[in-house]
Design a protein around this nucleic acid. Sequence first.
DNA 1: CCTCTAGATTTTGGATCCAATCGGTGTCAG
DNA 2: CTGACACCGATTGGATCCAAAATCTAGAGG
Lengths: 223, 223
Amino acid sequence: MSETSGTTANSTGIGSTRVAAYLREAILGGELKPGDRIRQEEVAERLGASRLPVREALRMLEAEGLTEHEAHKGARVPRLSPHEVDVVYRMRERLEPLALAESLPQLGPDEHAQLAEVQQRIEDNEDLEKFLDLDREFHMLTYSGCQIDPLMSNVTRLWNSTQHYRRAFVALGGRSRMWVVNSEHRLILDAVVRRDADDGERFLGGHIRRTRIELSHHPEVFG
Amino acid sequence: MSETSGTTANSTGIGSTRVAAYLREAILGGELKPGDRIRQEEVAERLGASRLPVREALRMLEAEGLTEHEAHKGARVPRLSPHEVDVVYRMRERLEPLALAESLPQLGPDEHAQLAEVQQRIEDNEDLEKFLDLDREFHMLTYSGCQIDPLMSNVTRLWNSTQHYRRAFVALGGRSRMWVVNSEHRLILDAVVRRDADDGERFLGGHIRRTRIELSHHPEVFG
DNA sequence: CCTCTAGATTTTGGATCCAATCGGTGTCAG
DNA sequence: CTGACACCGATTGGATCCAAAATCTAGAGG
Protein backbone atom coordinates (compact mmCIF):
# COMPACT_ATOMS: atom_id res chain seq x y z
CA MET A 1 0.00 0.00 0.00
CA SER A 2 2.95 2.24 0.52
CA GLU A 3 3.97 2.38 -3.15
CA THR A 4 1.06 4.58 -4.14
CA SER A 5 3.05 5.95 -7.00
CA GLY A 6 5.39 3.34 -8.34
CA THR A 7 5.02 3.76 -12.06
CA THR A 8 3.44 7.20 -12.05
CA ALA A 9 6.25 9.56 -11.04
CA ASN A 10 5.07 11.77 -13.85
CA SER A 11 2.07 13.71 -15.12
CA THR A 12 1.06 15.73 -12.12
CA GLY A 13 0.76 15.71 -8.39
CA ILE A 14 0.55 12.76 -6.09
CA GLY A 15 -2.02 14.69 -4.13
CA SER A 16 -1.66 16.28 -0.74
CA THR A 17 -4.73 14.40 0.44
CA ARG A 18 -3.02 11.14 -0.38
CA VAL A 19 0.08 12.18 1.51
CA ALA A 20 -2.11 13.24 4.40
CA ALA A 21 -3.89 9.89 4.34
CA TYR A 22 -0.56 8.08 4.39
CA LEU A 23 0.76 10.04 7.35
CA ARG A 24 -2.57 9.87 9.15
CA GLU A 25 -2.50 6.11 9.01
CA ALA A 26 1.12 6.05 10.07
CA ILE A 27 0.37 8.14 13.14
CA LEU A 28 -2.91 6.52 14.11
CA GLY A 29 -1.43 3.11 13.37
CA GLY A 30 1.42 3.74 15.77
CA GLU A 31 4.34 3.69 13.35
CA LEU A 32 4.93 7.32 14.20
CA LYS A 33 4.99 7.98 17.92
CA PRO A 34 4.60 11.19 19.94
CA GLY A 35 7.78 13.19 19.77
CA ASP A 36 8.83 11.73 16.43
CA ARG A 37 10.01 14.27 13.94
CA ILE A 38 8.59 14.18 10.43
CA ARG A 39 11.05 15.24 7.73
CA GLN A 40 9.42 16.58 4.61
CA GLU A 41 11.92 15.22 2.13
CA GLU A 42 11.86 11.79 3.68
CA VAL A 43 8.13 11.22 3.21
CA ALA A 44 8.23 13.03 -0.13
CA GLU A 45 10.81 10.61 -1.41
CA ARG A 46 9.04 7.61 0.05
CA LEU A 47 5.82 8.54 -1.70
CA GLY A 48 7.40 9.74 -4.92
CA ALA A 49 6.09 13.25 -4.52
CA SER A 50 7.74 16.60 -4.12
CA ARG A 51 8.02 18.30 -0.77
CA LEU A 52 5.20 20.71 -1.47
CA PRO A 53 2.22 18.37 -1.05
CA VAL A 54 3.95 17.03 2.04
CA ARG A 55 4.00 20.50 3.50
CA GLU A 56 0.32 20.92 2.78
CA ALA A 57 -0.46 17.50 4.18
CA LEU A 58 1.36 18.33 7.40
CA ARG A 59 -0.75 21.43 7.74
CA MET A 60 -3.93 19.46 7.17
CA LEU A 61 -2.88 17.02 9.85
CA GLU A 62 -2.15 19.89 12.17
CA ALA A 63 -5.81 20.88 11.84
CA GLU A 64 -6.70 17.36 12.90
CA GLY A 65 -4.46 17.44 15.94
CA LEU A 66 -2.10 14.83 14.54
CA THR A 67 0.99 16.98 14.10
CA GLU A 68 2.39 20.19 15.49
CA HIS A 69 4.53 22.78 13.77
CA GLU A 70 7.30 25.13 14.80
CA ALA A 71 8.75 27.61 12.36
CA HIS A 72 12.03 26.41 10.85
CA LYS A 73 12.01 23.44 13.17
CA GLY A 74 9.64 21.23 11.33
CA ALA A 75 6.75 18.99 12.23
CA ARG A 76 6.48 16.54 15.10
CA VAL A 77 3.86 14.22 16.47
CA PRO A 78 2.67 16.03 19.60
CA ARG A 79 3.62 14.52 22.92
CA LEU A 80 1.07 14.96 25.69
CA SER A 81 1.83 14.98 29.39
CA PRO A 82 -0.24 12.77 31.69
CA HIS A 83 -2.09 15.83 32.89
CA GLU A 84 -2.81 16.94 29.35
CA VAL A 85 -4.25 13.54 28.50
CA ASP A 86 -6.35 13.76 31.65
CA VAL A 87 -7.74 17.11 30.55
CA VAL A 88 -8.42 15.81 27.04
CA TYR A 89 -10.49 13.06 28.60
CA ARG A 90 -12.34 15.65 30.66
CA MET A 91 -13.04 17.50 27.43
CA ARG A 92 -14.34 14.31 25.86
CA GLU A 93 -16.50 13.77 28.93
CA ARG A 94 -18.21 17.05 28.24
CA LEU A 95 -18.25 17.19 24.44
CA GLU A 96 -19.11 13.69 23.36
CA PRO A 97 -22.37 13.46 25.27
CA LEU A 98 -23.37 16.61 23.43
CA ALA A 99 -22.45 15.00 20.12
CA LEU A 100 -24.44 11.93 21.05
CA ALA A 101 -27.49 14.02 21.95
CA GLU A 102 -27.26 15.79 18.61
CA SER A 103 -26.82 12.52 16.79
CA LEU A 104 -29.48 10.40 18.47
CA PRO A 105 -32.60 11.74 16.73
CA GLN A 106 -30.98 11.25 13.33
CA LEU A 107 -30.15 7.58 13.79
CA GLY A 108 -32.53 5.06 12.28
CA PRO A 109 -32.91 1.27 12.34
CA ASP A 110 -30.06 0.84 9.87
CA GLU A 111 -27.59 2.57 12.13
CA HIS A 112 -28.93 0.73 15.17
CA ALA A 113 -28.34 -2.60 13.46
CA GLN A 114 -24.89 -1.55 12.35
CA LEU A 115 -24.03 -0.49 15.89
CA ALA A 116 -25.17 -3.79 17.33
CA GLU A 117 -23.11 -5.59 14.74
CA VAL A 118 -19.97 -3.62 15.52
CA GLN A 119 -20.45 -4.14 19.24
CA GLN A 120 -20.81 -7.84 18.62
CA ARG A 121 -17.58 -7.82 16.66
CA ILE A 122 -15.85 -6.09 19.57
CA GLU A 123 -17.02 -8.77 21.96
CA ASP A 124 -15.97 -11.56 19.63
CA ASN A 125 -12.63 -9.97 18.96
CA GLU A 126 -9.47 -11.26 20.56
CA ASP A 127 -6.85 -9.03 18.96
CA LEU A 128 -5.96 -6.13 21.20
CA GLU A 129 -4.77 -4.12 18.23
CA LYS A 130 -8.10 -4.51 16.46
CA PHE A 131 -9.92 -3.42 19.58
CA LEU A 132 -8.66 0.12 19.18
CA ASP A 133 -10.21 0.55 15.75
CA LEU A 134 -13.42 -1.23 16.61
CA ASP A 135 -13.96 0.82 19.73
CA ARG A 136 -13.43 3.97 17.74
CA GLU A 137 -15.77 2.74 15.06
CA PHE A 138 -18.48 2.04 17.62
CA HIS A 139 -18.33 5.47 19.19
CA MET A 140 -18.02 7.33 15.91
CA LEU A 141 -21.03 5.45 14.62
CA THR A 142 -23.07 6.66 17.57
CA TYR A 143 -22.07 10.20 16.59
CA SER A 144 -22.66 9.70 12.90
CA GLY A 145 -25.99 11.50 13.01
CA CYS A 146 -24.37 14.67 14.32
CA GLN A 147 -23.93 16.96 11.38
CA ILE A 148 -22.39 19.84 13.32
CA ASP A 149 -18.92 20.17 11.88
CA PRO A 150 -17.34 22.33 14.61
CA LEU A 151 -18.38 19.67 17.11
CA MET A 152 -17.39 16.59 15.16
CA SER A 153 -14.03 17.94 14.10
CA ASN A 154 -13.24 18.72 17.73
CA VAL A 155 -14.26 15.26 18.83
CA THR A 156 -12.09 13.75 16.13
CA ARG A 157 -9.15 15.87 17.24
CA LEU A 158 -9.52 14.67 20.81
CA TRP A 159 -9.52 11.04 19.73
CA ASN A 160 -6.59 11.62 17.41
CA SER A 161 -4.40 13.35 19.94
CA THR A 162 -4.81 10.58 22.50
CA GLN A 163 -4.69 7.63 20.11
CA HIS A 164 -1.16 6.63 21.07
CA TYR A 165 -1.94 6.62 24.78
CA ARG A 166 -5.15 4.68 24.22
CA ARG A 167 -3.12 2.07 22.41
CA ALA A 168 -0.58 1.83 25.20
CA PHE A 169 -3.37 1.61 27.73
CA VAL A 170 -5.22 -1.15 25.90
CA ALA A 171 -2.03 -3.15 25.45
CA LEU A 172 -1.41 -2.77 29.15
CA GLY A 173 -4.81 -3.10 30.76
CA GLY A 174 -5.41 -6.20 28.74
CA ARG A 175 -8.62 -8.10 28.79
CA SER A 176 -9.76 -7.40 32.32
CA ARG A 177 -11.09 -3.98 31.44
CA MET A 178 -12.79 -5.23 28.29
CA TRP A 179 -15.69 -6.66 30.22
CA VAL A 180 -16.46 -3.28 31.80
CA VAL A 181 -16.11 -1.50 28.48
CA ASN A 182 -18.49 -3.87 26.77
CA SER A 183 -21.09 -3.53 29.51
CA GLU A 184 -20.95 0.20 29.16
CA HIS A 185 -21.19 -0.06 25.39
CA ARG A 186 -24.29 -2.18 25.77
CA LEU A 187 -25.87 0.46 27.98
CA ILE A 188 -25.04 3.16 25.45
CA LEU A 189 -26.32 1.04 22.61
CA ASP A 190 -29.55 0.45 24.46
CA ALA A 191 -30.04 4.16 25.11
CA VAL A 192 -29.38 4.88 21.45
CA VAL A 193 -31.96 2.35 20.28
CA ARG A 194 -34.47 3.73 22.77
CA ARG A 195 -33.55 7.21 21.57
CA ASP A 196 -33.10 8.25 25.18
CA ALA A 197 -30.71 11.19 25.02
CA ASP A 198 -30.53 11.65 28.80
CA ASP A 199 -29.50 8.07 29.41
CA GLY A 200 -27.13 8.22 26.49
CA GLU A 201 -25.37 11.28 27.85
CA ARG A 202 -25.23 9.77 31.31
CA PHE A 203 -23.82 6.41 30.27
CA LEU A 204 -21.40 7.89 27.77
CA GLY A 205 -20.13 10.46 30.25
CA GLY A 206 -19.62 7.76 32.84
CA HIS A 207 -17.90 5.54 30.31
CA ILE A 208 -15.36 8.20 29.44
CA ARG A 209 -14.93 9.30 33.05
CA ARG A 210 -14.21 5.81 34.26
CA THR A 211 -11.72 5.30 31.47
CA ARG A 212 -10.01 8.53 32.43
CA ILE A 213 -9.77 7.51 36.07
CA GLU A 214 -8.44 4.07 35.18
CA LEU A 215 -5.90 5.68 32.92
CA SER A 216 -4.76 8.02 35.66
CA HIS A 217 -3.79 4.96 37.71
CA HIS A 218 -1.42 3.78 34.97
CA PRO A 219 1.39 6.30 34.61
CA GLU A 220 3.47 3.69 32.83
CA VAL A 221 1.38 4.40 29.72
CA PHE A 222 3.48 7.52 29.28
CA GLY A 223 6.77 5.61 29.68
CA MET B 1 -2.04 48.39 8.71
CA SER B 2 -2.64 46.59 5.48
CA GLU B 3 0.76 47.37 3.97
CA THR B 4 2.63 45.03 6.23
CA SER B 5 5.40 44.78 3.75
CA GLY B 6 5.85 48.21 2.21
CA THR B 7 9.59 48.65 2.06
CA THR B 8 10.61 45.02 2.43
CA ALA B 9 9.38 43.45 -0.80
CA ASN B 10 12.81 41.96 -1.20
CA SER B 11 15.36 39.63 0.38
CA THR B 12 13.23 36.61 1.06
CA GLY B 13 9.76 35.52 1.97
CA ILE B 14 7.11 37.72 3.40
CA GLY B 15 6.37 34.94 5.82
CA SER B 16 3.36 32.72 5.98
CA THR B 17 2.83 33.75 9.59
CA ARG B 18 2.54 37.35 8.50
CA VAL B 19 0.04 36.45 5.81
CA ALA B 20 -1.87 34.43 8.37
CA ALA B 21 -1.87 37.36 10.77
CA TYR B 22 -3.19 39.64 8.05
CA LEU B 23 -6.03 37.32 7.11
CA ARG B 24 -6.79 36.56 10.73
CA GLU B 25 -7.30 40.21 11.45
CA ALA B 26 -9.36 40.63 8.31
CA ILE B 27 -11.70 37.82 9.32
CA LEU B 28 -11.93 38.62 13.02
CA GLY B 29 -12.23 42.31 12.18
CA GLY B 30 -15.22 41.66 9.97
CA GLU B 31 -13.79 42.70 6.61
CA LEU B 32 -14.16 39.12 5.48
CA LYS B 33 -17.56 37.67 6.21
CA PRO B 34 -18.82 34.08 6.38
CA GLY B 35 -19.25 32.71 2.89
CA ASP B 36 -16.63 35.02 1.38
CA ARG B 37 -14.21 33.33 -0.91
CA ILE B 38 -10.49 33.96 -0.41
CA ARG B 39 -8.50 33.98 -3.63
CA GLN B 40 -4.85 33.10 -3.17
CA GLU B 41 -3.48 35.37 -5.83
CA GLU B 42 -5.49 38.33 -4.63
CA VAL B 43 -4.05 38.35 -1.11
CA ALA B 44 -0.63 37.36 -2.44
CA GLU B 45 -0.57 40.42 -4.67
CA ARG B 46 -1.94 42.69 -1.95
CA LEU B 47 0.81 41.62 0.44
CA GLY B 48 3.57 41.45 -2.13
CA ALA B 49 4.16 37.76 -1.59
CA SER B 50 3.86 34.75 -3.79
CA ARG B 51 0.92 32.41 -3.58
CA LEU B 52 2.81 29.78 -1.65
CA PRO B 53 2.89 31.43 1.78
CA VAL B 54 -0.75 32.32 1.24
CA ARG B 55 -1.56 28.67 0.79
CA GLU B 56 0.27 27.82 3.98
CA ALA B 57 -1.42 30.66 5.82
CA LEU B 58 -4.84 29.44 4.73
CA ARG B 59 -4.02 26.04 6.10
CA MET B 60 -2.89 27.55 9.40
CA LEU B 61 -6.13 29.47 9.64
CA GLU B 62 -8.05 26.31 8.89
CA ALA B 63 -6.53 24.83 12.04
CA GLU B 64 -7.87 27.85 13.91
CA GLY B 65 -11.37 27.45 12.54
CA LEU B 66 -11.18 30.66 10.55
CA THR B 67 -11.29 29.20 7.04
CA GLU B 68 -12.46 26.03 5.39
CA HIS B 69 -11.00 24.27 2.40
CA GLU B 70 -12.39 22.23 -0.44
CA ALA B 71 -10.09 20.60 -2.97
CA HIS B 72 -9.81 22.60 -6.18
CA LYS B 73 -12.50 24.95 -4.95
CA GLY B 74 -10.43 27.12 -2.69
CA ALA B 75 -10.84 28.63 0.74
CA ARG B 76 -13.88 30.30 2.24
CA VAL B 77 -14.82 31.81 5.55
CA PRO B 78 -17.12 29.18 7.06
CA ARG B 79 -20.78 30.05 7.30
CA LEU B 80 -22.60 28.61 10.29
CA SER B 81 -26.31 27.91 10.49
CA PRO B 82 -28.24 29.20 13.52
CA HIS B 83 -28.33 25.70 14.90
CA GLU B 84 -24.59 25.28 14.43
CA VAL B 85 -23.94 28.49 16.34
CA ASP B 86 -26.26 27.25 19.05
CA VAL B 87 -24.27 24.05 19.34
CA VAL B 88 -20.99 25.95 19.39
CA TYR B 89 -22.31 27.91 22.34
CA ARG B 90 -23.27 24.66 24.04
CA MET B 91 -19.72 23.47 23.46
CA ARG B 92 -18.40 26.68 25.01
CA GLU B 93 -20.75 26.16 27.95
CA ARG B 94 -19.05 22.87 28.65
CA LEU B 95 -15.45 23.56 27.68
CA GLU B 96 -14.75 27.03 29.00
CA PRO B 97 -15.65 26.29 32.61
CA LEU B 98 -13.09 23.51 32.37
CA ALA B 99 -10.50 25.93 31.04
CA LEU B 100 -11.32 28.34 33.84
CA ALA B 101 -10.92 25.65 36.47
CA GLU B 102 -7.55 24.71 35.02
CA SER B 103 -6.51 28.34 34.88
CA LEU B 104 -7.67 29.56 38.28
CA PRO B 105 -4.89 28.15 40.48
CA GLN B 106 -2.25 29.63 38.19
CA LEU B 107 -3.53 33.20 38.33
CA GLY B 108 -1.83 35.57 40.75
CA PRO B 109 -2.39 39.13 41.97
CA ASP B 110 -0.97 40.56 38.75
CA GLU B 111 -3.53 38.80 36.60
CA HIS B 112 -6.30 39.68 39.05
CA ALA B 113 -5.43 43.35 38.79
CA GLN B 114 -5.22 43.14 35.03
CA LEU B 115 -8.61 41.49 34.88
CA ALA B 116 -10.19 44.16 37.04
CA GLU B 117 -8.65 46.81 34.85
CA VAL B 118 -9.99 45.25 31.65
CA GLN B 119 -13.43 44.86 33.15
CA GLN B 120 -13.36 48.51 34.17
CA ARG B 121 -12.45 49.44 30.61
CA ILE B 122 -15.40 47.42 29.35
CA GLU B 123 -17.75 49.28 31.64
CA ASP B 124 -16.32 52.67 30.69
CA ASN B 125 -16.40 51.81 27.01
CA GLU B 126 -19.06 53.23 24.72
CA ASP B 127 -17.91 51.86 21.37
CA LEU B 128 -19.82 48.72 20.43
CA GLU B 129 -17.04 47.62 18.12
CA LYS B 130 -14.46 47.85 20.91
CA PHE B 131 -16.70 45.82 23.17
CA LEU B 132 -16.11 42.71 21.10
CA ASP B 133 -12.35 42.80 21.60
CA LEU B 134 -12.52 43.80 25.24
CA ASP B 135 -14.96 41.04 26.09
CA ARG B 136 -12.72 38.54 24.37
CA GLU B 137 -9.71 39.94 26.19
CA PHE B 138 -11.45 39.59 29.54
CA HIS B 139 -12.40 35.98 29.04
CA MET B 140 -9.10 34.97 27.52
CA LEU B 141 -7.31 36.54 30.46
CA THR B 142 -9.32 34.40 32.84
CA TYR B 143 -8.09 31.39 30.87
CA SER B 144 -4.52 32.59 30.60
CA GLY B 145 -3.35 30.27 33.37
CA CYS B 146 -4.54 27.22 31.48
CA GLN B 147 -1.51 25.73 29.81
CA ILE B 148 -3.31 22.80 28.21
CA ASP B 149 -2.89 23.35 24.51
CA PRO B 150 -5.57 20.96 23.23
CA LEU B 151 -8.07 22.78 25.43
CA MET B 152 -7.04 26.34 24.69
CA SER B 153 -6.79 25.82 20.96
CA ASN B 154 -10.30 24.41 20.96
CA VAL B 155 -11.64 27.32 22.96
CA THR B 156 -9.97 29.72 20.56
CA ARG B 157 -11.51 27.91 17.61
CA LEU B 158 -14.96 28.23 19.11
CA TRP B 159 -14.55 31.96 19.65
CA ASN B 160 -13.14 32.39 16.17
CA SER B 161 -15.86 30.53 14.37
CA THR B 162 -18.62 32.56 16.00
CA GLN B 163 -16.89 35.95 15.94
CA HIS B 164 -19.00 37.28 13.08
CA TYR B 165 -22.26 36.34 14.75
CA ARG B 166 -21.11 37.80 18.05
CA ARG B 167 -20.44 41.05 16.26
CA ALA B 168 -23.84 41.08 14.62
CA PHE B 169 -25.45 40.29 17.95
CA VAL B 170 -23.65 43.03 19.82
CA ALA B 171 -24.48 45.58 17.15
CA LEU B 172 -28.08 44.51 17.40
CA GLY B 173 -28.68 43.91 21.09
CA GLY B 174 -27.13 47.24 21.84
CA ARG B 175 -26.54 48.52 25.31
CA SER B 176 -29.41 46.88 27.12
CA ARG B 177 -27.60 43.56 27.40
CA MET B 178 -24.38 45.19 28.48
CA TRP B 179 -25.59 45.66 32.03
CA VAL B 180 -26.28 41.95 32.38
CA VAL B 181 -22.96 41.00 30.82
CA ASN B 182 -21.05 43.27 33.16
CA SER B 183 -22.82 41.92 36.22
CA GLU B 184 -21.91 38.42 35.17
CA HIS B 185 -18.33 39.46 34.50
CA ARG B 186 -18.14 40.89 38.00
CA LEU B 187 -19.33 37.62 39.45
CA ILE B 188 -16.75 35.71 37.44
CA LEU B 189 -14.03 38.16 38.40
CA ASP B 190 -14.94 37.80 42.05
CA ALA B 191 -14.80 34.01 41.85
CA VAL B 192 -11.41 34.23 40.14
CA VAL B 193 -9.99 36.49 42.83
CA ARG B 194 -11.37 34.20 45.54
CA ARG B 195 -9.93 31.26 43.58
CA ASP B 196 -13.30 29.54 43.84
CA ALA B 197 -13.35 27.16 40.91
CA ASP B 198 -16.88 25.91 41.58
CA ASP B 199 -18.35 29.40 41.57
CA GLY B 200 -16.28 30.29 38.57
CA GLU B 201 -17.55 27.34 36.57
CA ARG B 202 -21.11 28.04 37.65
CA PHE B 203 -21.09 31.73 36.78
CA LEU B 204 -19.21 31.27 33.54
CA GLY B 205 -21.48 28.45 32.41
CA GLY B 206 -24.53 30.55 33.17
CA HIS B 207 -23.00 33.53 31.42
CA ILE B 208 -22.49 31.59 28.22
CA ARG B 209 -25.81 29.81 28.47
CA ARG B 210 -27.75 33.04 28.89
CA THR B 211 -25.93 34.54 25.95
CA ARG B 212 -26.81 31.50 23.86
CA ILE B 213 -30.48 31.73 24.76
CA GLU B 214 -30.57 35.46 24.06
CA LEU B 215 -28.91 34.80 20.74
CA SER B 216 -31.45 32.15 19.82
CA HIS B 217 -34.16 34.80 20.11
CA HIS B 218 -32.48 36.94 17.44
CA PRO B 219 -32.53 35.05 14.14
CA GLU B 220 -31.88 38.31 12.31
CA VAL B 221 -28.24 37.95 13.36
CA PHE B 222 -27.92 35.43 10.56
CA GLY B 223 -29.31 37.79 7.96
C1' DC C 1 -37.00 31.77 -24.79
C1' DC C 2 -34.83 28.37 -22.17
C1' DT C 3 -31.39 24.62 -21.69
C1' DC C 4 -27.63 21.94 -22.38
C1' DT C 5 -23.10 21.63 -23.95
C1' DA C 6 -18.45 22.90 -25.38
C1' DG C 7 -14.70 26.01 -25.23
C1' DA C 8 -12.11 29.71 -22.81
C1' DT C 9 -10.75 31.88 -18.61
C1' DT C 10 -9.83 31.79 -13.95
C1' DT C 11 -8.05 29.55 -9.99
C1' DT C 12 -6.07 25.98 -7.42
C1' DG C 13 -2.46 22.05 -7.06
C1' DG C 14 2.33 20.36 -7.92
C1' DA C 15 7.43 20.32 -9.29
C1' DT C 16 11.83 22.44 -9.25
C1' DC C 17 15.14 25.72 -7.83
C1' DC C 18 16.97 29.19 -4.54
C1' DA C 19 17.40 31.61 0.05
C1' DA C 20 17.37 31.66 5.06
C1' DT C 21 17.54 29.46 9.41
C1' DC C 22 18.74 25.76 12.67
C1' DG C 23 21.94 22.10 14.67
C1' DG C 24 26.12 20.07 15.23
C1' DT C 25 31.06 20.02 15.11
C1' DG C 26 35.58 21.61 15.31
C1' DT C 27 38.85 24.97 16.63
C1' DC C 28 40.94 28.54 19.23
C1' DA C 29 41.46 31.37 23.32
C1' DG C 30 41.46 31.60 28.27
C1' DC D 1 40.78 21.14 30.11
C1' DT D 2 36.68 23.90 29.39
C1' DG D 3 33.82 27.26 27.16
C1' DA D 4 32.63 30.30 23.45
C1' DC D 5 32.60 31.34 18.62
C1' DA D 6 32.51 30.34 13.84
C1' DC D 7 31.79 27.49 10.10
C1' DC D 8 29.37 23.76 7.51
C1' DG D 9 25.78 20.41 6.53
C1' DA D 10 20.90 19.56 6.91
C1' DT D 11 16.23 21.11 6.76
C1' DT D 12 12.62 24.21 6.30
C1' DG D 13 10.48 28.45 3.88
C1' DG D 14 9.65 31.07 -0.47
C1' DA D 15 9.46 32.21 -5.61
C1' DT D 16 8.54 30.94 -10.25
C1' DC D 17 6.80 28.02 -13.76
C1' DC D 18 3.63 24.41 -15.40
C1' DA D 19 -0.53 21.15 -15.23
C1' DA D 20 -5.26 20.14 -13.98
C1' DA D 21 -9.67 21.11 -12.24
C1' DA D 22 -13.53 24.27 -11.78
C1' DT D 23 -16.20 28.15 -13.10
C1' DC D 24 -17.94 31.30 -16.48
C1' DT D 25 -19.50 32.40 -20.96
C1' DA D 26 -21.19 31.92 -25.37
C1' DG D 27 -23.38 29.39 -28.89
C1' DA D 28 -26.25 25.84 -30.85
C1' DG D 29 -30.32 23.17 -30.58
C1' DG D 30 -34.85 22.14 -28.86
